[in-house]
């Protein structure tokens, strides 16, 4: 694990070893559970094979926090999560999935093969972040792990099913995006600021896509 400052009151813990690994992420979920119970830690932000923490730097020494984080990582086992499983119907292609032809061309597959691959495997929510309720889904089949668009789109609709940089996701809100849009999800809102549980997705959840 590499520890770097991420602020005067923050550390970034980087556990990545090359490409994203599910086993590392499961242990990071375990670490998150440990850290959330520690009074010294203010905020925990999950990343992909990394994690950021903030603490009160007027009360605590950086060296003590660093040591505590090191020890916590050594103790952290894989998180005990009983995953929820969500099945999300998707309309692939067409106007609401305008990058499906591009993804097919790039991967050398037919559009229906891309859809078959994308629907043929369960995904896990590695973390929620970037924008409210945005869940990074891991487990993308290797042929679909293509880089992001060279030029981001200025506008992508809400609930677009996207693919980019080895992750797939459903966009919670409209906005710019550098990911490839495969289709439109038919699911409840992914974020509701007024709800007790604001995010539909939680780290560890299992998501399956089915063709609508």
């Amino acid at each position: 694990m590499r520890i770097n400052y991420a602020g005067v009151d923050a550390f970034l813990l980087d556990m990545s070893e090359g490409a994203f690994q599910d086993a590392i992420q499961a242990r990071i979920w375990g670490l998150e559970q440990l850290l959330t119970d520690m009074p010294e830690i203010q905020t925990v932000i999950l990343g992909a094979n990394n994690l950021l923490v903030t603490y009160d730097c007027e009360r605590h020494q950086a060296s003590a926090i660093r040591q505590m984080l090191q020890t916590a990582w050594e103790q952290a086992g894989s998180a005990h999560i009983t995953p929820r499983e969500l099945v999300i119907p998707v309309t692939y292609g067409g106007l609401e999935g305008e990058d499906l032809p591009f993804v097919a061309k790039t991967t050398g597959l037919s559009e229906s093969e891309v859809v078959a691959l994308h629907t043929g495997t369960p995904y896990r929510v590695a973390m929620v972040g970037f924008s409210p309720g945005f869940g990074y889904l891991t487990g993308v089949p290797q042929p679909l792990a293509i880089p992001r668009r060279n030029t981001p789109r200025v506008h992508v609709e809400q609930k677009s099913v996207c693919l980019g940089g080895g992750f797939t996701a459903v966009t919670p809100s409209p906005g710019p995006s550098g990911w490839h849009v495969l289709g439109k999800a038919h699911c409840p809102d992914l974020f509701d600021a007024g709800a007790n549980t604001p995010c539909l997705l939680k780290a560890g959840d299992i998501v399956r896509f089915v063709s609508a």
């Binding site: 991420a6 602020g7 994203f20 990343g47 990394n50 950021l52 972040g129 924008s131």
Partner: peptide, 28 residues
């Protein structure tokens, strides 16, 4: 890989021209 991001972070995108994250920055 995507990681948490706090206001105050100075990022350098491929253009090589820095961006300083402010209060309403994305979280990753």
């Amino acid at each position: 890989l995507s990681h948490g991001l706090l206001p105050g972070t100075v990022q350098v995108p491929p253009s090589g021209q820095p961006i300083i994250q402010m209060a309403d920055a994305n979280t990753c």
